[in-house]
Write a protein that binds this DNA or RNA. Sequence first.
DNA 1: TTGACAAAACTAATATAATTAGTTATTATA
DNA 2: TATAATAACTAATTATATTAGTTTTGTCAA
Lengths: 192, 192
Amino acid sequence: MSPRVNLDKEAILKIAADIADRDGLEAVTIATLAKKLNIKSPSLYNHFDGMNDLRVHMAIYGMNELYNSLINATIGVAGEEAIHCFAEAYITFARSHHGLYDAITQISLEKDERLQVAGDKTVELVSRVLGTYKINKEEEIHIVRGLRSMLHGFASIEKNGGFGLPVDTDESLRNMVDIYLLGIQKYRNTEI
Amino acid sequence: MSPRVNLDKEAILKIAADIADRDGLEAVTIATLAKKLNIKSPSLYNHFDGMNDLRVHMAIYGMNELYNSLINATIGVAGEEAIHCFAEAYITFARSHHGLYDAITQISLEKDERLQVAGDKTVELVSRVLGTYKINKEEEIHIVRGLRSMLHGFASIEKNGGFGLPVDTDESLRNMVDIYLLGIQKYRNTEI
DNA sequence: TTGACAAAACTAATATAATTAGTTATTATA
DNA sequence: TATAATAACTAATTATATTAGTTTTGTCAA
């Protein structure tokens, strides 16, 4: 009857991400997604175990996309510049992938162990980019957590229109990272 | 027939917040909320203009609750200590109000101007707490944005189980704020 | 080449949510 | 006490997620 559409998970997730980025994450329903794919709602269950499973996979897909952007932005740069590149790429991703970024950040990592794995890659990348700023193992973890917090918080607040004042947000980002890096330097001097 | 329950917005929002904190924000449906209030779903429309309006009001309610906690935590303290108190109170609120915190942070402030107003109070409080660290007007805005980003990002990532490693998160918070404050100091010295 | 099997589509049906329309009861107040 | 506003109600509609059971299609082995 209907010519088999031949979908794979990856293709479906791409479409789902498109809907999310265009119309918001909550616009990705079984119904809208199925319609975009030219199939009926129940057919989606051949590929995903329901809405929950779809959300998990969207998050993993998004994390990998984000990771790729971040890797790309930090190839061939080092030190302070690398960190700024990283930060800029992170925020750029969030800005251009509203819905997918929501998919990444609105999910509890305990829901599925593959989420943890996908997230760990990026955490490790943060750590590598911070290379020269490290002090010791434990301190490194704190510093990585701090940078992740700053970047996610910035992306999230900006997305929701939380930076209302007419002051350039790009400059705020650069300033925030600069201050943090200066802080690490000073912290290191104090420690020794 | 049914004895008039005599609900007011505030009372309803308290119950809604309870459900959100206990079972997650998505568990706050018209149906569950009405049931908790011993009324039928359509009766809720006498108090709120539907789900969207309820979400807006939950966010405003949450912002005010958060603001009160923050005010409370920063009375009678000054300088660096005040900022640490502020940060700790912020994270404590997020930890003990998972669902309500989601209500605050998952809404676009452009949806309703009262959201902007409620948020501005807290932004101004951040600014006051940062008192001594200010440099100039524009710089102040960047610094406030930075601190807000850090705190929200930290709360959000922690809530989703993003800090997986067995390292104390309280220490990470203190460390992050310390480094930021050190950074501001150093930044200020560089500027002059 | 064919036939069987698995994958992936389908239809039909159910449960739950949000919402609207129209009605009834209760409360405050004129 | 009568009335008007408020806030509850029932009934009905639409949309969503999901399940059960069926049909189609493509692949691969005999």
